[in-house]
Design a protein around this nucleic acid. Structure first.
Lengths: 348, 348
DNA sequence: TGACAGAATTGGAACGTTCCAAATATTTTG
DNA sequence: CAAAATATTTGGAACGTTCCAATTCTGTCA
């Protein structure tokens, strides 16, 4: 057990050069003689030197720690796990490492986590903000010159970059698809109305029915928690309307699954008796029964785009807030009734 | 945009005390007078001070950075995502943050990632090692006094702590369950034979059939990649045996899903025509058709246990290698044929 | 050969914190 | 009230790196 850490000074001593030269080697400077460089490298290997980024970071004040913080609200949700993987891919290949934390939708936790990351000197932050995050919450970060990229959920009013999926277009295509299948009474179920994502998706819904020549009916928009339980609740309200809907687009897949549960509890089969479309295309969507028709959003792609944007801003020193909207596409499976339940898995 | 960072010296100046006193306040020392403490705290808030852990860390050489590294081989797999969440829970509440990285089973990536984490001064490492990781690979870490906890897959020969599920007991209970259902020819399908996990699960299989008074037949053990495709391959070999099996325990759920695919491709229905049992209880297992009977391992629990063990070792300064085996339990669903396919979801 | 340019190297000083030993203020005690 | 004990506070000197300006080495050219 080696007690003393090997430092740049030990290397210098052993290689017969000064610490400055070793430092130059470390930074790959072209100023050092080829022979010296290789000797120093050899000694470093031999003594088992490990670079102390903390110390380096301290000196080059404000410069880059090569750490990016990643904050998501639910890593258990495969959507966010994929997102984190996407971020990791680009971040890692740029020689950065990621600090990843999970807020579980808790705004206090988010604050703690971000503060902690800041203490550790992150060079940038990618965050999928917890619900009800204050737009001003990341103000201090950007004021300190730390770029912030918001993903998945945008933060209207905050002057930060964001990468979100095309919620409007996605929901619109879902509605149009249902209209093409002949549905006239299409409900919009689930989601909290106080969020930007909700607004976007609802706007897409309205454009969709308008494009299909259907009138908008206020009572067909039923909000609820964006969860499975919320879906059950929403379909419960929808089904007792005087003029019942025959189809629904849901705020997200979780709600859609809940809607399916609620339909079954009323002896209605999703797909054949009532068309259901989700949003997100979580991993369970294709394995479910019936397989869920949904809008696929490629969380990994969002992660990659977000990371790229962040790295760009980090390198640029300071960049303007920028918004990226990633494309989505409707994946037609069974729950919309367009296809019979054909359970053939290739597997080969 | 504040150009200059606020330091402990600025606080000291503004509060009319010395930097040492500020430092004492920072550390919550009981040496400082109550009045002084609150004044300093007030000034810190006012000036927007942010603690520089890097600098602190530099001084208390070797001491704790309050960063733990977490390395998994596939974050996309919900099993590992859950694990990471478990780690995050305990690590976060202990005031640590986690560096999380994904190796995608690449041993080079693993090496890079671990090296990078080390440069950043992690106080401990939790790793689910990529396949074929050399037992000696973490030697330098522990030599430097950085505790390492290996999870999920153990590393025989490495002198590090580990937290693994009870593979032996789990597989044994799966086999016993099938035997109770009347099966005599039970195959063991999938997995790479060069891994410790494989050995354990196979040993459990052997104990299980022995306990049931069934003879062991070499040809019923068919290894393959531990993936869906591997499962298809393995069942393909099993089904053409002279004396066909009527049931199979699989190396993991992915293999089990592949086995189901392969059965269907041969017009056999998993559950009724052939019993299939998986291992892991991934999130898709209960939503699949038929719902998969499998051995549930609680990855989040493993994450928590691993983190606790790591923190213990970090606090102890140095601890002996310790092995924790977490309990598993068989979850009986449909694919073993014990139950009819009853599709009732409560949802409420 | 001496001056000069370029290449390679180098000794501090700094970064923001913690630690130590020592100094000062406050209280207690005989 | 002096001395002793206790409670607070405090200036440096670290920690391991990078940066700067300055230095020492090379060779080149007139």
């Amino acid at each position: 057990m080696t007690k003393a850490r090997v430092t740049v000074i030990d290397i210098a001593k052993a290689a017969g050069v000064s610490k400055s030269t070793v430092s130059l080697v470390l930074q790959g400077s072209s100023l050092v003689h080829e022979g010296t460089r290789s000797k120093v490298n050899a000694v470093m290997r031999e003594l088992g030197y490990v670079y102390n980024r903390g110390a380096a970071n301290l000196r080059q004040a404000g410069a880059k720690s090569r750490i990016v913080g990643v904050v998501v609200n639910d890593l258990t949700n495969s959507f966010f796990a994929e997102l984190a993987v996407g971020v990791d891919m680009v971040v890692q290949s740029a020689g950065f490492v990621q600090f990843l934390s999970n807020t579980s939708e808790s705004i206090d936790r988010q604050r703690e986590v971000v503060a902690s990351m800041r203490e550790h000197g992150i060079s940038g932050l990618i965050v999928s903000p917890a619900r009800a995050t204050d737009a001003a919450d990341f103000k201090p970060l950007v004021a300190a010159g730390i770029p912030v990229v918001v993903v998945v959920r945008n933060l209207p009013g905050a002057k930060v970059s964001s990468v979100v999926s095309d919620n409007r277009a996605g929901m619109m295509s879902a509605v149009e698809h249902l209209a093409e299948l002949g549905h006239k009474r299409i409900a919009f179920l689930g989601g909290f109305p106080d969020t930007a994502v909700f607004d976007d998706r609802l706007a897409g819904y309205r454009s969709g029915i308008e494009a299909a020549g259907i009138d908008y009916h206020q009572e067909l928009v039923i909000s609820s928690a964006p969860s499975r339980a919320g879906g059950v609740e929403a379909i419960g309200k929808a089904i007792v309307l005087a003029d019942k809907p025959t189809a629904a687009v849901c705020f997200n897949d979780a709600v859609a699954f809940g809607v399916c549960d609620g339909l079954r509890a009323r002896r209605l089969e999703p797909g054949s008796d009532f068309a259901v479309v989700g949003f997100d295309d979580v991993i369970e969507a294709q394995a479910a029964v019936p397989a869920l028709t949904t809008v696929s959003v490629d969380p990994q792609g969002i992660g990659r785009r977000g990371a790229q944007l962040l790295l760009k801003q980090i390198n640029a020193g300071k960049a303007e807030a920028e918004t990226v909207i990633t494309a989505v596409r409707l994946v037609v499976r069974e729950s919309c009734g367009a296809r019979k339940s054909v359970k053939v898995e290739t597997g080969l």
